[in-house]
Write a protein that binds this DNA or RNA. Sequence first.
DNA 1: AATTTTTGTTAGACTATTCTAACATTATAG
DNA 2: CTATAATGTTAGAATAGTCTAACAAAAATT
Lengths: 218, 218
Amino acid sequence: MTLTEENYLKALFHLSLENEEVSVLDLSKSLNIKMPTVNSMVKKLSSKELISYEKYKPLTLTQGGKRAAGLIIRKHRLVEMFLVEHLGFGWDEVHEIAEQIEHIKSQRFFDRIDQLLDFPKVDPHGSPIPDINGEVAIQNYKKLEECHEGQQATFMSVGSSQDSFLKLIDKLNLKLGDKIKVLEIQDFDKTMRVLVNNNSEQTLSQLGATKILVKLNV
Amino acid sequence: MTLTEENYLKALFHLSLENEEVSVLDLSKSLNIKMPTVNSMVKKLSSKELISYEKYKPLTLTQGGKRAAGLIIRKHRLVEMFLVEHLGFGWDEVHEIAEQIEHIKSQRFFDRIDQLLDFPKVDPHGSPIPDINGEVAIQNYKKLEECHEGQQATFMSVGSSQDSFLKLIDKLNLKLGDKIKVLEIQDFDKTMRVLVNNNSEQTLSQLGATKILVKLNV
DNA sequence: AATTTTTGTTAGACTATTCTAACATTATAG
DNA sequence: CTATAATGTTAGAATAGTCTAACAAAAATT
Ligand SMILES: [Mn+2]
Ligand SMILES: [Mn+2]
Ligand SMILES: [Mn+2]
Ligand SMILES: [Mn+2]
């Protein structure tokens, strides 16, 4: 499989998680590639039985396509983790590099990284690292936005890897695993005042709170 | 610059070190790409002022081409070193992976690896790592083959990265930095009996001794 | 139900990299 | 110094991946 094909599969995989149905237009937008190009690549991947394609119908990955995509995402996330843990990169700097290294052809290379990291289950953004069969564990975290005043939760994952969002989280001194207690929610604009790890008070916009994924503490 | 262009420059660089003059045929053989293809790529790189090209004349790198090639080789060798030192690869396993990773677009990535390795000067095969300007230090080591009976030398570099050769060196338990004393050279076939680090005796064929590069001990 | 908008497809073209076949030049060997 | 061999070049075609322009189908609006 070529780097290009791999990127199409990965994009379709991600879109399929976010949306009920995925169109050629969706894929086109997500890859920043014009529709006719996507159309022909989809046909090609369909002929390789990685994508199920019927004219004018939504796109889906075949079993094989899902597995292939999962394995690429596995490599991507292992690399991101490695870049943060061993090369000292910030979590806002690793995506672009991982986007390239995920295409390296060497099973062994990724196995070693996995081993060096002691077989991590999540990447630096809290996203699950698919297993050796490309299988992705389903996380069902809650958006912090959905929490009520007084509730306590643990910060498990980010809902966006946008640079500006990650940098904001850094600035608020929030880290995965932190305990977040909702102190107050403004009626007017849903702005949240929260207590982090029982010691630092922070304010979050509603949009920000949407992208902070948490597990409620019992 | 594309991966393909980078590989052409690198190949020409290496050939230029080994031979007085480099022909289109040499480059073609070394890249395993047919001559007409090489011919057109050479023209393209010439138009980018990376290669000096005149019809029917030997090929040379321009100043810029040399620098570009040096920088790619720098990345290649840093990666090889990293793979050996931090991911536990054998020196016979790293070339293929480095061949891919050398094309990753991220200055910072290679800077971090350089730092993590504490700015190494040589790769796992004893070859010099070009500096940040692509400048390669010239090593002038002697072939062990040229040493006389009784001489002592230090194993500095290998003259071949062929898998079978590297594996042989491993089997003989020879490592870069080892002290080698020439005990005896057979008149008949130039086979060498040597003493390694004053404790293990080994036998080397003439061909083998040609590929072991050493610095004479005074 | 007819019209408009959105989405999808086809056709044709372009660049990058590669190839084979044919021809040209240079080098080598009588 | 010619004939042959080796090397180099040109021409033309193929594949992968991309694009624009034009047309077609499906969905959304009157
Ligand atoms: Mn990422
Ligand atoms: Mn990618
Ligand atoms: Mn190498
Ligand atoms: Mn390479």
